[in-house]
Write a protein that binds this DNA or RNA. Structure first.
Lengths: 354, 354
DNA sequence: CTGAAAGCGCTTACAG
DNA sequence: CTGAAAGCGCTTACAG
């Protein structure tokens, strides 16, 4: 029964605090925002009133009136928040944002361009200070609107069809290096096992890197060795067909985390896990515990997320330099499965491949 | 050069749109909010002006003035966004929220109560419509303020020390069931391998479940078999000590995902992976690909996230029923490592254990 | 050091 | 079907 006035939603406002403390709204505002130049006495009275009323500063109202209009919010749009790659990127972004006192809106597009557009619009209505996203689909022109509206935008995992900052792994070179590693181990018949979304840029690049490595080594690209499997059963049938043919692959490059597991599951069931080499794209927690341990090409999602956030905040802080592409290094981790030797023992190839 | 007025941040407002369309602000508001009762002619003019000016509706300003004060935002606070358990929970929440057109602020506390408090305050300043969090620490009284302010709150993974909705797994029963499974397989010397944060509620419950199962079966609890290992090296030393002692454990219960992997790594290095039984808490993607495949007690993070979101939105929609605890079932997945037989072949125990 | 008035972009409550 | 005025909770720009 302190007699304070409660407006709108019933929550106490600066006006209520001012009334209880017996000061002006401006003074309360000064205290709340930590502005200097309020006497200790008034500060105490205001603080007490805030505590008494359980006053909560309304950031939205503050932002609305402020000159800079900053919301201290950024939007992050991932493809799939449950995927270890994206959740690691997300974690890194979170840490950079938290250190700046910026809150993060997170959403996933599930590889759906329509959903992406809806989320971007939702973020735009919230006037986020910036956006980090893994773009989906071909046409990203709707993102131009954000840029024109002055909202900094950083894409990762995939480049966008617009002129903006990008943080990427060089999938093509990474895979070419990996496949060259298999060739050096004596393999010539190397299968490429892809899966869903083989039309997205990074995955296309992986196929290109596979072709690059074979071409560089003078190995013919056999299209029958390039397969796309969308289910465990398809993977099983594909591998059974491949390994039963008269000139079977002796090594398998698996295009994603998910496919790597499916392939290993299948070749274990077939009992050939120690005779067929496997090199997977993207690392996973238990890769070293497989039999044999799984060699992979690993991206660095923590570095990708950190860089993306750094670039974004630099833009938010006023950086107006031209958009740039940041390539985050990948690393080939030899653990055993990728070092199973192939049939060829030709030192000249070793020279060809470096 | 359409002569529109640009206020504040330089972005077009409803006033600008109204001026260009030659209507009142209220009419623009009606069109933007899809309210009925605007003639087709005016709707067209307004739509054209919106398009021309690239007008973007300001949700914060709208919320500020609206009677209900809803922000269409919820806050989600996880322990670690990179952990597969939490990222699966998060994904499920995201999907439920997206279907309602609600945006999600995500943050992680990293098991730090101070950080938790900071994040909750940040969310509160944004006037989120509700909160879902995995609480950290002992004292959650600061959350009472949110409840008193009318902000619905759902905790998961761990109960909170306040009266609010909770979505939990029954860790104690789950582990007791799992350890009973080991006992039934003939084990009596069963080690409990814990790790970091063994003081948090769900982990304490796992130890309690372990003790329950042994006690129920009339097996003495040997404290030397209960170990906490914080690093791979500690895990290695602990297991070497345990397995070298005169009455070594024949089965290992591993308390978390992370520890399961460390333990498997160690026993593989020791070459005893086929003679020592292992049962892990929480499933992981490649568990079936280990040698032997790893038996686990699996939580259902998707169901946990979905339920938490459903409960939250029910509260947001006005549900005022007493707070309730939702227990999401766990499942024991026997894959091999947990079915390695122990030395005892006493059918009476099978009776004792069910 | 302190405060009264105006206004951020929007919706309410009302009148026509 | 349409609009003019007031006000959501806050900060700005100014005056004292």
């Amino acid at each position: 029964m302190t007699g304070e006035r409660r407006t709108g939603t019933g929550r106490p406002t600066i006006r209520d605090v001012a009334a209880v403390a017996g000061v002006s709204m401006k003074t309360v505002s000064r205290v709340v925002n930590g502005e200097p130049g309020v006497s200790d006495q008034l500060t105490l009275r205001v603080t007490a009133a805030i505590e008494q009323l359980r006053y909560r500063h309304n950031l939205a109202a503050s932002t609305l009136r402020r000159a800079d209009g900053r919301t201290a919010t950024v939007g992050v749009l991932l493809i799939d928040i449950g995927d270890p790659f994206f959740s690691s990127v997300n974690r890194a972004i979170q840490h950079v944002a938290r250190a700046r006192g910026v809150d993060v809106l997170v959403a996933c597009s599930d590889e759906d361009p329509t959903l992406e557009r809806m989320v971007i619009q939702a973020f735009a209505r919230r006037y986020v200070d910036g956006l980090i996203l893994a773009p989906t689909g071909e046409d990203h022109s709707h993102l131009t609107r954000e840029l024109e509206a002055g909202v900094p935008l950083v894409v990762f995992d995939r480049p966008a069809s617009i002129d903006t900052d990008a943080v990427l792994s060089d999938n093509r070179v990474a895979v070419a290096t990996g496949v060259a590693h298999l060739i050096r181990a004596g393999h010539r018949r190397i299968a490429y096992i892809g899966g869903d979304h083989d039309d997205v840029f990074p995955v296309q690049q992986r196929l290109a890197g596979y072709v690059d490595a074979l071409t560089d080594a003078g190995v013919e690209v056999d299209k029958r060795l390039v397969r796309h499997c969308h289910t465990p059963r398809q993977t099983q049938r594909a591998l059974e067909t491949l390994l039963a043919q008269r000139d079977p692959p002796t090594a398998l490059f698996t295009c994603t985390n998910h496919i790597t597991l499916n392939v290993i599951r299948t070749i274990k069931a077939m009992g050939v896990q120690h005779s067929v080499a496997v090199l997977g794209f993207d690392d996973f927690p238990a890769a070293d515990l497989m039999e044999p341990p799984v060699s992979v090409i690993a991206q660095d999602p923590a570095a990708i997320g950190e860089r993306a956030a750094e670039v974004l905040f630099r833009r938010i802080d006023g950086d107006r330099s031209p958009a740039s592409v940041h390539v985050i290094p990948t690393v080939l981790i030899p653990r055993g499965s990728g070092e199973i030797p192939g049939p060829v023992r030709d030192p000249s190839v070793a020279v060809l491949c470096e």
